[in-house]
Computed example of a mutant assay.
Amino acid sequence: MTTRTFRIMVRGVFGGLTDEQRAELLAAAPEHDVLHAAFTREGHLSYDLTARTAFTFRFLDEGEAEEDILEATERAEQAARAWLADRGYGHKNLRSQAEDLSQAPLGKRQRRAANTAG
């Protein structure tokens, strides 16, 4: 069986942050800048509190079957909740979006490479 790669984004909004929590997040903002966003196994958090209170975690996971994306999404949501809870950050409107890269359409360069190889 082939391994499938899943990219999962868990989005939400910080809620009820104290002044101290806001200052903490602002101090850590450079490492959570959206320009450095990446899909990682442990999850990468990005946000810009100066613009809005929304955040996005990006996770990379794997599975063998198409149905494994549901478990991968649940793991990603649990990891995001745990990260927020460990720091005491309130949140709301948590939602996720997952993509099975084996099902993603090929880009122009990928199609050209596939046609050349064949």
Rank of each mutant, 00 (worst) to 15 (best):
M1T: 15
M1G: 15
T2I: 15
T5Q: 12
F6A: 14
F6Q: 13
F6M: 14
I8G: 00
M9V: 15
M9P: 04
V10Y: 00
V10H: 01
V10M: 00
R11Q: 14
R11N: 14
G12I: 01
G15W: 03
G15Y: 04
G16T: 08
G16F: 04
G16E: 10
L17A: 00
T18L: 06
D19A: 13
D19F: 03
E20W: 03
E20T: 05
E20D: 14
Q21E: 08
R22Y: 06
R22F: 04
R22A: 07
A23C: 05
E24M: 03
E24A: 05
E24C: 03
E24P: 00
L25W: 00
A27K: 11
A27I: 09
A27C: 08
A29M: 07
E31D: 12
E31N: 08
E31I: 02
H32M: 01
H32T: 02
D33T: 03
D33R: 06
D33M: 02
D33V: 02
H36D: 08
A37G: 10
T40C: 08
R41N: 11
R41H: 12
R41L: 11
E42N: 10
E42K: 10
E42Q: 14
H44S: 14
L45V: 09
L45I: 12
Y47Q: 01
Y47R: 02
Y47D: 01
Y47V: 01
D48A: 08
D48W: 00
D48C: 01
L49H: 01
L49W: 00
T50E: 14
T50R: 13
T50L: 12
A51C: 10
A51K: 14
R52Q: 15
T53S: 12
T53I: 12
A54C: 09
A54F: 04
F55G: 00
T56G: 00
T56N: 02
T56V: 08
R58D: 05
R58F: 05
R58P: 02
F59N: 01
L60R: 13
L60A: 14
E62S: 12
E64M: 08
E66S: 13
E66N: 09
E66P: 06
E67G: 08
E67C: 06
E67A: 12
D68Y: 07
D68G: 06
D68A: 11
D68M: 07
I69H: 06
I69A: 09
A72S: 10
T73V: 05
E74S: 13
E74F: 13
R75D: 07
A76V: 05
E77Q: 10
Q78V: 13
Q78F: 06
A79W: 01
A79L: 06
A80Q: 01
R81D: 04
W83F: 03
D86K: 03
R87D: 02
R87N: 07
R87A: 04
G90T: 10
K92N: 10
K92W: 09
L94A: 02
L94R: 02
L94W: 00
R95A: 13
R95G: 08
R95K: 11
S96N: 11
S96H: 10
A98V: 05
E99V: 08
E99T: 09
L101M: 14
S102H: 14
Q103L: 15
A104H: 07
A104S: 12
L106M: 15
R109E: 13
R109G: 07
R109P: 02
Q110S: 11
Q110H: 05
Q110W: 01
R111E: 12
A113W: 05
A114Y: 04
A114F: 05
T116M: 11
A117K: 12
G118E: 11
